[in-house]
Nucleic acid binder design. Structure first.
Length: 981
DNA sequence: GAGCACTGC
């Protein structure tokens, strides 16, 4: 790239103009190499019939390409004339030249025509965007603004009004539950004792105790029976003693009225319970009561402690309720001044003025996200209509930060300050401070490859290294080279900043102290075999020995969390009143929202909250009041195997960076403690320094398509901060070629350009484009939307597995899972998108709502890529063919030894949740391949081999789709079932 | 007969 003076301009130029020659040449050579490599491999393995078939058709072209390449190199300086010559020459030669030459010329002519068409299409899209922008902004400005206001108001109300009510409610529920559980426990305990020690001679004391317990139980039973008989009266049956009124009521109060000895019975009950508990755990279960390990304070590690933060309490005036607007404004300014970044304002602005790229290192809470863009605004970086972009990895972050900055600046959200996220654009023409998700800025490159309207781009939370952030780095670095006036800020937590600096040509690093309380880190003395058990024990240990403060436990997934919660609740119940109340609350992304909200409710006085969470609590949400963090040191991580194209999700030890991030969660409100369930040695020697960046762990079809659309051809030499594996890129290129998104020279085709607009995975977008031909785009859009919400459509609670499974089976349609998904969506739409319908059918409302959002967006994009909307009118064959047109790469056939993928002859299985699980169609298409306990195909569709020839004549040959065992196999299972359906 | 962490366009 560097030898080409225009190199850095590639992204800007290429979209409308011809791609830079040097890059193109390199890409071509590379593809050439790739292909010959594939060819070798294929000829060795006769099993890879289909691929070698694709390869052999290429073989012919390859010879021609050599010729072409030479030619192009010679004529490099006269591109335009060459193009003209080819075009006119091509049409002439069609009639005159011998066949082989004709074929080559035709291919070449078609290629050039397609490129022209592609660029014309891109131009049309840009033009339409321009025309439409105004409308969209005006509309969304109002709508989004109202929505944002509503959200903010709700959050406010949450804090003010809902909380006390919620607290009361949860307390009531809790008390009722506790009463029930206590009684059950007592009964169980008595039963146990009678069973175990019935024959044993008891001491006088023990006999007395037993007798007393029985008495208490009988009283409680009687009370309950009485209460049920006279429900009306029961409400007035007892009152709270004056002195305890106002304090939380206690479940045991109910006993005292019955006994007629106020206070006395209660005291005795408590003593009995306490005695029972200590008896059980102190004497009979002595061994299990021993702490399993000792937590040892290894080092008093403090994570970035800044004294100044504690001054903040004095500086921040608690705004009086009657304060005027001016006063409020004053207090906002005071808060702004109190942030750690404030003293560095001038220094920072000077550094930004002097350097094009600046790395900003600062912990969360330093105010960098909210303040720095404001400083830049105040400094005049937004003059002449220029904008400032600040990217966030998450939608909520972009929204809430924008709202806060708008408040600080005293403007309406969506005017000067706005945010822009998928499904929601809250910006207007006046917007100069623009918070957005990183993926959103990435898409903006498509319409504005040089980011001409921005004077500053700030990439926040860079240390998280999301896929989008990583790609942004490469693109922004490139843009910065030919736009010297563009300022680039890379904001990151205290890690990896040296690497960022090196990447951006040794950009200076500006450090801002954070505001965080110290966190003591504890390690275990010896490794734990069962970390789940260890977790439960440690939680109780913290609960018993440590001062008040909530606990946050990090586990890997839903299953583990459910198990841990159950164990904890079980232990607590058994310990009874020996320990203070412990509220156990799970949180993970798939948890229904109302359950999720529970973790934000304040802890009742005297109780302690334990939040058992997945990685969601590591970055995505912050829970107030967490003082203790319990970290077993594991997380689930996705990995991608480019050789098989298979994704897997495995439990792996987390990185040091991740462990520190988790520990930091303990120090948000006050000094905290973090207990790590592994040894200090393991931390030092066994944990990776940082998590492997996402770009090295996922399939890159989408990324390649996007980069190609931006005119970047030489992906192997794209400036990645951490380059993805070579094989992953190769596989992505290969698949895109097979899908027709790239031509034989590795250039983007018109259809590829359209696929890039659709922002779903390439195969999915190919399917959508193909739906036009089979006129079933209505249905295909639905299928695509449903496929893009991760398998979280069906809700399957543990206690209603049978019902849930029945509900799912009711949606089955012959043909396969794609049609089942279509069926679910259609029925839901018919119900008026009802949440009640979802509830009744064990379908997750949240996922469906998301599918609806996606579908609506895709519908808009369909218009953009110039595809008409048409219904299939009940002809599901058309739908299935369109799906096949996108997923012909993902096919499997039934052999005597089960299913094998057509492409790689890999043994695979139908997922047990599939509607086709108990059937064995001969030909299958799958949406994805996942490795869990086996290699499973998820979302499978029955197809016919003849369709493969129909939808992709270039990829399959009739011969290889013949089945040698055809006659021995039952006749077309699919057909007969379709007749039934 | 399985068992999906988390984001994002």
């Amino acid at each position: 790239m560097s030898e080409d003076p225009r190199g850095p301009k590639v992204p800007r130029k290429a979209v409308v103009e011809k791609p830079a020659r040097a890059a193109e040449r390199e890409a071509r050579a590379l593809l050439e190499k790739n292909r010959s490599y594939r060819l070798l491999e294929d000829s060795e393995e006769s099993s890879e019939e289909t691929v070698s078939r694709a390869g052999s058709s290429l073989q012919k072209k390859r010879k021609k390409r050599k010729h072409l390449r030479k030619k192009r190199e010679e004529e490099e300086e006269e591109e335009a004339s060459e193009k003209g010559k080819k075009k006119t020459g091509g049409s002439k030669q069609q009639t005159e030249k011998p066949e082989s030459e004709d074929e080559w010329e035709r291919t070449e002519r078609e290629r050039l025509q397609d490129l022209e068409e592609r660029d014309a299409f891109a131009e049309r899209v840009r033009q339409r965007d321009k025309d439409r922008t105004r409308n969209v902004l005006e509309r969304s400005d109002k709508k989004a603004y109202e929505e944002a206001q509503k959200r903010l108001k709700m959050a406010e109300e949450d804090r003010k009004a809902m909380v006390p009510e919620l607290r009361k409610k949860s307390r009531r529920e809790y008390l009722a539950k506790r009463e029930r559980e206590k009684l059950e426990d007592l009964e169980a305990e008595l039963a146990d004792e009678e069973f175990l020690f019935g024959d044993v001679e008891l001491s006088r004391h023990e006999r007395q105790e037993l007798k007393y317990k029985r008495q208490v139980r009988d009283l409680a039973r009687e009370y309950r029976a009485a209460g049920e008989q006279e429900k009306l009266e029961a409400t007035n049956r007892y009152h709270m003693p004056k002195e305890t009124r106002g304090q939380p009521a206690r479940a045991v109060d109910l006993v005292e009225e019955e006994s007629g000895a106020p206070g006395e019975e209660q005291r005795r009950w408590e003593e009995a319970r306490l005695g029972a508990a200590s008896l059980k755990f102190g004497a009979r279960d002595a061994a299990s009561q021993e702490p399993k390990y000792q937590l040892v304070l290894e080092e008093e590690e403090t994570i970035e402690f800044v004294r100044a933060t504690q001054l903040q309490g004095d500086e921040e005036p608690s705004a009086p309720p009657t304060s005027t607007q001016a006063q409020q404004k004053e207090s906002i300014q005071a808060v702004r001044r109190s942030l750690p970044v404030f003293p560095f304002r001038e220094e920072l602005l000077a550094a930004i003025a002097n350097h094009q790229v600046l790395i900003i290192e600062g912990e969360t809470g330093s105010g960098k996200t909210t303040q720095i863009p404001q400083y830049l605004f105040e400094e005049g970086y937004t003059n002449k209509g220029m904008k400032i972009a600040c990217t966030q990895p998450r939608r909520v972050a972009a929204m809430s930060v924008a709202a806060r900055v708008a408040r600080e600046m005293g403007v309406k959200l969506g005017n000067e300050v706005g945010y822009s996220i998928r499904f929601e654009d809250c910006t207007s023409e006046r917007t100069v401070l623009r918070y957005m998700t990183d993926g959103m800025l990435l898409r903006e490159f498509l319409s504005e490859p040089d980011l001409a309207s921005y004077s500053v781009v700030m990439v926040d939370e860079a240390h998280e290294r999301t896929l989008h952030t990583d790609i942004l780095f490469g693109l922004i670095k490139d843009v910065a080279r030919f736009r010297p006036e563009l300022k680039v800020l890379v904001a990151s937590a205290t890690m990896d900043t040296a690497r960022f600096s090196t990447f951006f040509d040794d950009a200076p690093v500006f450090r801002i102290p954070g505001r965080r309380f110290p966190v003591d880190i504890f390690y275990t003395k010896a490794p734990e075999a069962d970390y789940l058990e260890a977790c439960v024990v440690s939680v109780l240990q913290i609960h018993v020995t440590q001062p008040p403060g909530d606990i946050l436990v990090f586990l890997t997934g839903q299953e583990e969390i459910e198990a841990a919660c159950e164990m904890l609740q079980d232990r607590c119940r058994r310990l009874g009143s020996k320990i203070r109340e412990l509220l156990v609350l799970p949180i993970y992304a798939n948890l229904p929202s109302d359950m999720q909200a529970r973790i934000f409710q304040p802890t009742p006085p005297g109780a302690r909250k334990v939040v058992v969470a997945t990685n969601i609590a590591e970055t995505s949400l912050t829970i107030e009041g967490i003082i203790y963090v319990l970290d077993p040191g594991f997380c689930k991580q996705k990995s991608y195997n480019p050789r098989t194209g298979m994704e897997s999700l495995t439990v792996t030890p987390c990185s040091k960076a991740s462990a520190n991030q988790r520990a930091g969660r303990a120090g948000r409100a006050a000094a905290g403690k973090c207990f790590r369930l592994y040894t200090a040695w393991a931390y030092q020697h066994e944990l990776e320094e940082t998590t492997v960046p996402e770009i090295q762990r996922t399939s890159l079809g989408n990324v390649v398509l996007l980069l190609k659309s931006l005119g970047i051809h030489d992906l192997m030499h794209f400036d990645f901060l951490d380059p993805p594996p070579y094989e992953t890129l190769l596989l992505a290129l290969e698949q895109l070629y097979a899908l027709g998104a790239l031509n034989h020279l590795g250039e983007l085709t018109t259809s590829g350009r359209k696929m890039a607009e659709l922002l779903v995975d390439p195969m999915l977008s190919k399917m959508i484009l193909a739906s036009e031909k089979y006129s079933c785009s209505e249905e295909i859009l639905t299928v695509a939307a449903m496929l893009s919400v991760n398998n979280s459509i069906f809700y399957r609670p543990k206690d209603k597995v049978v019902h849930a499974d029945n509900a799912r089976v009711n949606f089955f349609l012959p043909g396969g899972d794609h049609l089942v998904l279509l069926n679910v969506y259609t029925q839901w739409a018919e119900s008026g998108y009802s949440s009640q319908w979802c509830y009744e059918n064990f379908v997750q409302f949240r996922s469906m709502r998301r599918a609806r959002d996606v579908r609506e967006q895709l519908e808009g994009l369909l218009e953009r890529v110039e595809v008409g909307l048409s219904p299939c009118q009940g002809d599901y064959i058309r739908v299935r063919k369109a799906i096949t047109a996108g997923y012909f790469y993902h096919t499997a056939r039934l052999t005597r030894s089960g299913y094998r993928t057509v492409k790689q002859q890999q043994t695979v299985f139908i997922h047990p949740n599939s509607s086709l699980f108990e059937q064995q169609p001969r030909w299958l298409l799958y949406h994805e391949l996942v490795l869990t306990t086996k290699e499973f195909m998820r979302q499978v569709l029955e197809i016919e081999s003849s369709w493969l020839l129909e939808v992709t004549p270039h990829y399959y040959k009739a011969k290889e789709l013949e089945d040698p065992h055809a006659k021995k196999m039952p006749k077309k299972i699919g057909k007969t079932r379709e007749e039934l359906g």
